[in-house]
Design a protein around this nucleic acid. Sequence first.
DNA 1: CAGTGGTCTAGACCACTGG
DNA 2: CAGTGGTCTAGACCACTGC
Lengths: 267, 267
Amino acid sequence: MSQAFPSTADQTASRQGASGAAVPGQTAAFSPLYQQIKGLILRSLQAGEWKPGEAIPSEVDLATRFHVSQGTVRKAIDELAAENLVMRRQGKGTFVATHAEQHVQYRFLKLVPDNGDVNSEGPAQREIIDCKRLRASADVARALQLRTGDAVLQARRVLSFAGKPTILEDLWLPGGPFKGLTAERLTHYHGPMYALFETEFGVRMVRAEEKIRAVLPDAAQSALLKVGCDTPLLSVERIAYTYNDTPMELRRGLYLTDTHHYRNELN
Amino acid sequence: MSQAFPSTADQTASRQGASGAAVPGQTAAFSPLYQQIKGLILRSLQAGEWKPGEAIPSEVDLATRFHVSQGTVRKAIDELAAENLVMRRQGKGTFVATHAEQHVQYRFLKLVPDNGDVNSEGPAQREIIDCKRLRASADVARALQLRTGDAVLQARRVLSFAGKPTILEDLWLPGGPFKGLTAERLTHYHGPMYALFETEFGVRMVRAEEKIRAVLPDAAQSALLKVGCDTPLLSVERIAYTYNDTPMELRRGLYLTDTHHYRNELN
DNA sequence: CAGTGGTCTAGACCACTGG
DNA sequence: CAGTGGTCTAGACCACTGC
């Protein structure tokens, strides 16, 4: 009895007592109740039942809805909070996480000024170099789990700090979910790009993976960053995922690291 | 009543009921019971009451010892487990984390082969270039929270994969805790360096911070890595900490990234 | 003051390990 | 089988927020 929750929402949770009655020759994957609840809440988040920034129902409400104790709902939400999918605020409620908040802006950008103070340099200046639709090359298609030749959107931009070009980014988005995204829209939006993705296209980036290398720029790249072709740069390839481990963005960044560095914490 | 646990171990935990009786003009920092328990367990870990790899007392034992419920101990241990200070194993117990285990070896090394399979290339070949005692320069002293001129131990080594030099590391250790460490010992030890630190010097690295840049090697560096002076390399400066946020190692690595990359996961 | 998340408890039962 | 961590519950109370 590991298929405890069929598709409809309001349903009583099933305890998995009879472990002997499982499929023979196969280990019945044990999934605790709170994991199932977590899955249900996840499904609602995914379906957009609650929008980014909004509060989700209180723990007692959810406990009633799912016919479990508050403690079980609590443990489910604990895990969602640990994965940054929701934010708990004591006395107020639990809120769907968003990239559009001041203190979590640029959650995925690990480049910081050498003095360590992200606030010391003010907001980045952004310049969209171009933005066009094209057909996915083999490697882009693979990264985004599309087929070669599928429609994708490509953009290139430069970020500058204190007037100095520091980051050159190329990014690719699947054509379907991001239909209607234009250079205009990108240029005039103020705030993190991922916030725009949320509000305009309903795409929430939930986690990302980065592959980092040291490279030398080609002629076009060095011109845009205004450095010599012999200046070593960080190459940061990022794949960002929505719910369900679905890749939704490929980003290739070149970071200038003379006044900034990529900061990472290891646990 | 936020100073609930004085220095002796076996003591009854105090509830913090009377919040009105706090120091006037100052917010009484509320610290929940499980945090205090966590602090006590942490203190025992730090004091070496249980060695790396050993089991700590069971939850019920600890609950008895601290005069709290098992649930409270559980929450304390949950946090310690989340910080990788202990490892829980259902049915067996809770164990002090160690760097000397197969599946968590090289916990702090994020460089992986491009095919992503860490096991495909076999163990790294290690060569100690040198290892000597000297006086801390200003920047090394600052990183290790020592005074300029204090005794430090410096080592340099090259790691090779499939015979190809890939990582050049310089590292600095505080002279006091690592008294007696020699090039001999480093050369003949098989296993992660951090495991040696645990077993031989009782120093457990708990977390680390890295600053990453792209650089070009100098003549000596390029010779050791057998690459040209125009080959861009990842510069990875790591500070590793023991308990209490005490820095215990400064490491400056140069990573060759033509067949490997630095892998990072963002949440 | 009511409503929210956060803490703490005591007890029952389950899943896993090893002797 | 006993001992461990893991789940789930019901209930009490605390801390914080906003009305």
